[in-house]
Design a protein around this nucleic acid. Structure first.
Length: 1169
RNA sequence: GCGGGUAUAGCUCAGUUGGCUAGAGCGCAGCUCUGAUAAAGCUGAGGUCCUUGGUUCGAAUCCAAGUACCCGCACCA
């Protein structure tokens, strides 16, 4: 038997698992690659997936695109590399390993082996490698389950190899790390690498500086306590500057107070003391959003972002009033210009701290650098306190207009400090806690609210605290561990990105080299999809605005920055570009390092000799930014003859500043500004839950890949109710992703999965099972000689013709990376054309029995089988890239289990992608059939208007149309129309069927009419529509002073009495709704048949069973109808004998009502009566 | 704060260079079909096309302002 019986409700996930086995056992993937060897290359570059956890369903979206396009280009005859990538290094892995090992801090990490930092780091780094290997393998298995075809590492032996030797690429591989070294060396040669001492956001928990890219991800609206602080002026007893800060811990390190020289400041007297503050802030409504800081308060006023439960800010004036106490008040005694205040000396809030007594700043390391760079004279913080100019950066939009300046705690403070010779005092260490030298605050964490309390206590004791308030603002947090960032003076390593460029014309500035502009130039060579996202503009915008790239992390697991620094001169450093260079230059440590990957702690052992000074050089302990790891892959993994990649695809949120950026940046440097890393980028949006909310593990609405694929599980809806779901399976997920608009967020869940399965998979499966199950019964042989297509009936040639259209769409869509277009068209093909027309109309061709057919009949039936077989097998090949399992299951069965002797490939994935067969295209036939389908719909609505069900035969359907294809369809498919609409005849009418009414077609007439609309409307009213129609047929007419032709005026119609009519565009359809007694009798008989069929089913009879039938009714009309159509009824219900009168003694009996009339049905199986 | 986007049915979204009666899928309601049958089809209800103003004979569409949400950029005391 050529085919296997097909279950009507299949277990898709189970079938998928069988297909995986089939592929593995038959080495199908290897065979595919062998077929394509030596063909034109199509280069795909995989964006590495972070190997830190199992996959979620959101990963499956991108991985479906990756696989679908790779499979398409493989079927279309290209050689591919099929290499998957894993992202291995970086803080995210460290954080998970810290959790595993229950470590809380960097100190814990360095004490893993008590007393041995180096061994501790080694153990920690090994744990990170282990974690990556573990989850890379998990993700590999899951990707295989998704149906992704890549050169996977499968066996234990594969995984025992080093990352460099495995089939997938790993960013922790030596190849990758050394490639980045060569990149950094090139940057160094262009003098782009520099060491920056700067105040940067810092995560005290992770102990790392946070780069600009990372900071974007962590802003959150939070509450802090802000305070107003008095700074007594040394030369004006009883007078104070009033400053405001949201970070009280930085007051310990105050060195200056910045004013804007152009602003006016008030001198406010309160209880005998004088306070200085900016005039503009005094009465300001502080809850209005900053913006219009000009005086006119009518300027647009937004409301400040605020948190519920936090009281509104009061104005500064109000604070003065309430502090004045009852009956008293403040007094404005004078105004001064900011510039007059410059140089005023004041007493700092924490001048008693040792840290304030250190020349050049604090702590010593900082002081050393400050001294070396000449950033300030030999003064201590306590001595340096004075009013400085902050220029226009000091505004009246926030605070008091006098800015507390701590050059060791703020970016701009640091700049002001350098400009004014103020020594920086850096209060906190890499753990975010106060250094020694800060008195009672020593060891306290700066982010801890209790620390603010301690600061407030100190201030109170000294009478420096003017007020405390609860304040809400957006504040950066660590994107990994969510702790608050602190601004801290650090030394980090940067790549200088160079001068700005004009995004409209991104060339390097005249003369000078600008890395930024070079990247921009390369970026313009890349295609960003989908177009609606304006990806290129986004990327250029980022390139324009970004600062220098901070590439260092003071951590353990990652790229070892190949920077060696002179032991005596921290400004003298070198970048090493390769392992070979390192070996050559090493004067110590090579023996120990050799045999290890270039990771900590081993690489740290290498010591170089400074050729200029003869001093020893040590590697900086920092590791690299992980986007370097992912950014180099176009060079570290793609061989030269595979560059640039034809295609990459990733979820775009964030990636314009992360992977896309890194890839462009590193490739620009590596190719000296010549070659982009890829030609086309397809971005896609974010995967949400089925209610449109972000998926979060904690919210219970995220779905693990394994559960979606095989296990089933449950999700929580937004109200927290639990919704269980069954396994969805890979192909349903994949189709969901393929049919999605990549620019929009995707809603994933059991409900969308069910919809997609019902809409596509089950519809297709129904067609397939219908075909196969009849083909089995009929012994259809797919290898039998073909009935020439020309000799097949219209409907066969029609679907083959439309199938070519689908093939054309498929090829265009895949080639332009628009799989959605193909998927939606395929759905329409399967639903509207194959299922709802071809199969439905052809059921009787398939089930007609060979025994009663003549030669022509048998040939017609063979044509039907062959047509449907061709359609289904072609569909299998078309959808194979999207739903590889479903396609494979159907293909194998349809091609008699892949017997290659029959000319079919043993796997659908070893086929070529279908090409359009021009000889099968019959445009007229396709048009005519479309017209037919439209006519059926119209006729259906006309029936509906006439309130006559399809079972009731009607006399006549009339059609009036100006469409040639409708006219042709009417002639060509008259029988079909009669059958579908259950009418006795269908007639093409030469004249309109319906009462005319005229209507102007503004689409064509609008331009002619213009402003004369009213005149034309008036003129229209005076002419009968029928006359208008007649005159128009003769030629253009004049109406209201405007010449109009037949195209400009549409004549519309309504039906005459007894008829029901509908109109669509140029076609009118009218159906005769009147019933003659004959028609009514026939309709009744059809109802009777329907009830008898029901009764048969209820009686549990088999399809083939013959029956003895008895039909009785007290209603004479019904009995007459039964008598008149007795033979038709008997044939339809397979009654071979009649019993006149009631038959209650044997078999099955029931009573029903036919159009209100009682009918007793009795039947029994023939032979039992 | 600056720039960009979006706003259309209960939900998810289409809607061409302005053109008159604004669509689809899902959901809902009703009906039908019933030898593909735990499938399928049809019909219906449901819209201030975010608001206001403007341009125009005519605006969901173009312009301006406003509102809400989203994205990017900038965020300082």
């Amino acid at each position: 038997m050529p085919f296997e019986k097909v279950e009507s409700s299949p277990d898709f996930p189970a079938l998928e698992r069988q297909v995986l086995k089939f592929w593995a056992e038959n080495a199908t993937f290897e065979k595919r690659k062998a077929l394509n060897a030596g063909k034109p290359k199509w280069s795909f570059l995989d964006g590495p997936i972070t190997a830190n956890n199992p996959m979620g369903v959101h990963h499956a979206w991108g991985r479906t695109y990756k696989d679908a396009y790779c499979r398409y280009f493989a079927m279309a005859g290209h050689e591919l590399r099929f290499q998957n990538g894993f992202d291995c290094q970086g803080l995210w892995v460290e954080v998970e390993v810290e959790k595993e090992l229950r470590l809380k801090s960097k100190r814990d990490i360095e004490s893993l082996v008590p007393g041995n930092v180096e061994a501790s780091i080694d153990r920690f780094v090994q744990a990170c490698k282990d974690r990556v290997n573990t989850f890379a393998r998990v993700q590999t298995d899951q990707s295989i389950r998704l149906g992704m075809w890549m050169n996977w590492d499968v066996t234990d032996a594969d995984w025992a190899k080093t990352p460099d030797e495995r089939k997938s690429y790993f960013t922790m591989a030596e190849r990758n790390n050394y490639a980045i070294w060569s990149f950094l060396k090139k940057c160094f040669a262009k003098k782009l690498i520099y060491r920056g001492y700067d105040v940067m956001p810092w995560c005290g928990r992770c102990g790392v500086g946070i780069s600009e890219q990372e900071m974007k991800e962590g802003y959150k609206l939070v509450e802090h306590r802000a305070c107003f602080v008095k700074l007594p002026l040394l030369d004006k007893p009883g007078e104070n500057l009033l400053v405001w800060t949201t970070t009280p811990w930085t007051l310990t390190s105050n060195v200056g107070a910045a004013v804007n020289p152009k602003l006016t400041y008030l001198k406010v007297k309160l209880k005998g003391e004088i306070y200085y503050l900016a005039k503009g802030v005094f009465k300001q409504d502080r809850m209005a959003s900053s913006g219009g800081d000009e005086e006119d308060s009518t300027a647009k006023k937004g409301k400040r972002e605020w948190l519920d439960g936090v009281p509104n800010l009061s104005s500064i004036e109000q604070m003065f009033k309430s502090k004045a106490g009852k009956g008293e008040n403040y007094e404005i005694v004078d105004e001064v210009k900011g510039e007059e205040m410059l140089g005023w000396r004041y007493a700092g809030p924490f001048d008693d701290l040792p840290a304030q007594q250190s020349e050049y700043g604090f702590p010593e390391e900082v002081a050393k650098i400050v001294k070396q760079n000449g950033w300030c004279p030999a003064v201590t913080g306590a001595v340096a306190h004075r009013v400085v100019s902050g220029g226009d950066d000091v505004s009246e939009s926030e605070g008091t207009g006098i800015v507390h300046t701590a050059p060791g705690c703020g970016d701009i403070d640091f700049a002001w400090g350098k400009a004014n010779g103020l020594p920086p005092i850096a209060p906190i260490g890499d753990d975010g806690c106060f250094h020694k030298g800060f008195g009672s605050l020593e060891g306290k964490n700066a982010a801890d609210p209790a620390t603010a309390d301690a600061v407030f206590e100190e201030l109170k004791k000294k009478d420096r605290l003017f007020g405390i308030e609860r304040y809400v603002h957006r504040y950066p947090h660590c994107w990994r561990c969510k702790t608050e960032l602190l601004y801290r003076l650090v030394d980090e390593w940067f790549i200088g990105m160079g001068a700005a460029f004009d995004p409209a014309n991104p060339q390097s500035p005249e003369g000078g080299y600008s890395f930024r502009a070079e990247i921009a130039k390369v970026t313009t060579q890349v295609t960003f999809l989908p177009e609606s996202l304006n990806g290129r503009a986004r990327e250029l915008d980022w390139l324009k605005n970004m600062g220098d790239w901070m590439i260092s992390k003071k951590r353990y697991w990652g790229l070892a920055l190949p920077i060696w620094v002179d032991e005596k001169d921290p400004t003298d450093f070198e970048v090493i570009g390769s392992r070979e260079e390192l070996k050559e230059r090493a004067i110590e440590g090579w023996q120990e390092f050799d045999g290890h990957t270039p990771h900590r702690p081993w690489v740290d052992k290498i010591v170089l000799k400074n050729p200029r000074t003869g001093n020893r050089m040590f590697r900086v302990p920092d590791v690299g930014n992980p986007w370097l790891d992912a950014g180099i892959v176009a060079y570290s993994t793609l061989p030269a003859d595979w560059r640039p990649a034809d295609f990459i695809t990733e979820s775009f949120p964030g990636q314009f500043r992360n992977w896309f950026y890194a890839l462009l940046a590193l490739s620009t440097m590596m190719s000296d500004g010549e070659v982009p890393p890829f030609k086309t980028l397809l971005g896609f949006a974010t995967c949400k839950d089925q209610f449109g909310h972000d998926m979060h593990k904690s919210a219970g609405n995220s779905i693990e890949f394994n559960k979606a694929a095989d296990e089933g599980g449950e999700i929580k809806d937004p109200k927290g109710a639990t919704i269980p779901f069954n396994a969805i399976g890979a192909d349903v997920m994949r189709w969901l992703y393929c049919r999605q608009n990549p620019a929009s967020n995707l809603l994933f869940g059991p409900k969308p999965a069910d919809e997609v399965r019902a809409k596509f998979h089950l519809k297709l499966w129904n067609c397939y099972s219908f075909f196969v199950n009849y083909a089995i019964a009929d012994n259809f042989d797919p290898t039998a000689a073909q009935v020439p297509v020309k000799e097949r009936p219209d409907i066969d040639r029609w679907i083959l013709s439309d199938l070519q259209g689908l093939i054309r769409t498929a090829r265009e869509a895949f080639e332009s990376f628009d799989v959605m277009r193909f998927a939606l068209e395929a759905e329409r093909f399967v639903d509207d054309r194959l299922s709802n027309w071809y199969v439905r109309r052809n059921r009787d061709r398939f089930w007609s029995s060979n025994a009663v057919l003549d030669d022509a009949g048998r040939r017609d039936k063979l044509a039907a089988y062959q047509t449907m077989h061709a359609v289904l097998t072609t569909l299998c090949r078309l959808i194979a890239p999207c739903v590889p399992f479903l396609a494979e299951v159907m293909w194998k069965n349809l091609t008699a289990h892949g017997r290659s002797s029959a000319g079919f490939a043993p796997s659908v994935h070893l086929c070529d992608f279908p090409s359009v067969d021009e000889t099968l295209i019959d445009t007229d036939l396709s048009d005519d059939t479309q017209a037919l389908l439209d006519l059926i719909t119209l006729g259906g609505s006309a029936r509906n208007l006439a309130k006559q069900v399809v079972r009731q035969p009607l006399a006549e359907l009339r059609v009036y149309t100006d469409s040639d294809s409708v006219k042709r369809a009417l002639r060509r498919f008259a029988t079909t129309i009669c059958d579908e609409l259950n009418v006795k005849s269908v007639v093409l009418s030469e004249s309109p069927l319906l009462k005319a009414s005229a209507k102007i077609q503004m689409k064509t007439a609008g331009a002619k009419i213009g402003a004369k609309r009213k005149e034309v409307d008036e003129a229209m009213k005076t002419v009968a529509a029928e006359d208008l129609a007649k005159r128009l047929r003769a030629g253009p007419i004049e109406l209201g002073g405007v010449a109009l032709d037949a195209n400009d005026i549409a004549i519309e119609y309504t039906a005459e009495s007894g008829w029901a009519g509908v109109v669509d565009r140029g076609t009118q359809v009218a159906i005769d709704g009147r019933l003659t007694p004959e028609l009514r009798a026939e309709g009744l008989s059809r109802h009777v048949i329907r009830f008898v069929q029901d009764a048969r089913k209820n009686a549990g009879l088999d399809l083939a069973d013959k029956i003895v039938l008895s039909l009785t009714s007290p209603a004479e009309e019904l009995m007459a109808a039964i008598r008149a159509h007795r033979d038709a009824i008997a044939a339809a219900v397979q009654a071979t004998a009649w019993v006149d009168g009631p038959m209650t003694d044997l078999g099955f009996a029931t009573t029903v009502k036919v159009d209100g009339m009682e009918l007793m049905i009795g039947l029994s199986k023939q032979g039992l009566a």
